[in-house]
Design a protein around this nucleic acid. Structure first.
Lengths: 230, 230
DNA sequence: GGGGTCATGTAATAGGTTACATGATTCT
DNA sequence: AGAATCATGTAACCTATTACATGACCCC
């Protein structure tokens, strides 16, 4: 909300702040709690970076060591607690995340914007695979949902999977539309496709096309510089 | 497709491979070409890492130096070209991106899964802001779309923005539904909300609630360990 | 002469991932 | 006895970002 450049961007940091907002905890407990609540499915969590992230949170004074519990010959448990600065950061961060959509860059969008490198016929096949996999994903979400309802968990606990389902469905619809457009349409959607591929194809084939610029035949790939190995 | 662990994951690397698939280029030209085609809007591109990524591509033998052009006292231009290994990687990478949806982790999904840290009344306000911003975004996309149609650009060139619009719309619908559910519903959606916040509230207030476990009153935050500063 | 843009890069740092190392306890 | 789990962490590595540095050319 206020200042867009937060010291930490790792979502694991956000998750830890939330846990410590509930109660003090030691690192291992954080990991098991997050696992228990299955947060990995909606938050990118890498438990290997747990101690690293805690170090960062300490550095920023968002958290502090509350106590170090030593029992017998067990390794000592370092219990952390939230500091007021960390609480402020947590609330501010959450407010920003909820109120302000941030442009994110899914790789599928990148792929679509580079689609002409693949021949349209292949894209059709690939999209069919994708659509099948998306259907599977949606079925899985539905199953999970059913389980939750059977266990009579309040809806609040599965809001994130509702969101995930909505987004997956939207991608599914988009993919299906794109596929059928590609299949039906020989001119409109495909117009420009081969033209965009042409330069490469021309370079490869040594081409007799008129519209190909600036790539003399003696500069064809494959023959020129392709050395064996270092 | 084949092996999931690619040596490079940076989308800038993918973009460079595509450019070199079209024709050999020097780094600065790559940057300007990508800017010209406005790829930043659909691919996360950080031009500062350009030379670093090129170094990686060289290391992987995906690309090679084709020639070094020296004109007068200008800095020499190092022209790169795609090697067959790089072409294979590009095609394989693209196939995977199109055919296989990868679970990605938008921050909004993370926020939703942690929503109970915020009081429901505040979430309502924040969602209203979000919805407004999403509307703005959609209007912008529509304007862009109109421009493209006026310039009679083939649809192929704006597929990625169609995708972006579809996803943004889905998020918009989800947010609106969530908002109205939150506003209407006093029991169903909200049930569990305060309970999830309770532990924290209890800790803060010293609480007389029965169901609060394991946090003795002498361990309240604020008073106990919050030191002034280092 | 000054600003923009062409064109190169390096250096420092932060960020994150992976793998490894340790050792006690508890369950089978 | 052996496996899983509890609980700590470090070290190496790689990636990525940021900021800086250089210098010529071109147009006003």
């Amino acid at each position: 909300m206020t200042d867009s450049k937060r010291p930490l961007t790792n979502p694991l940091a956000l998750a830890i702040l939330v846990l410590l907002y509930e109660r003090p905890m030691h690192p291992y407990e954080m990991a098991t709690t997050l696992r228990e609540r299955r947060k990995e499915s909606s938050i990118r969590l890498n438990y290997g970076s747990l101690y690293a992230v805690i170090k960062q949170l300490l550095r920023e004074k968002f958290i502090a060591v509350r106590e170090i519990l030593k029992e017998g010959k067990h390794p000592a448990k370092t219990v952390y607690e939230l500091r007021s600065l960390g609480e402020a950061e947590l609330i501010d961060w959450m407010r920003e995340l909820v109120s302000s959509p941030a442009k994110e860059y899914p790789m599928f969008e990148a792929a679509i914007s580079l689609l002409p490198v693949l021949p349209p016929e292949e894209v059709i096949e690939l999209l069919e695979i994708r659509i099948g996999l998306l259907e599977k994903t949606i079925d899985q979400i539905d199953e999970e949902e059913l389980k939750c309802r059977e266990m009579k968990l309040p809806r609040l606990f599965s809001l994130e999977s509702e969101y995930y389902k909505a987004m997956t469905l939207a991608e599914y619809e988009f993919s299906k539309d794109l596929l059928s457009d590609l299949k039906r349409d020989a001119g409109r959607l495909r117009s420009g496709w081969t033209e965009m591929r042409m330069q490469h194809l021309a370079a490869k084939a040594g081409s007799n096309e008129a519209s190909v610029p600036a790539v003399p035949k003696n500069q064809k790939r494959k023959e020129s510089h392709e050395r064996k190995n270092s």
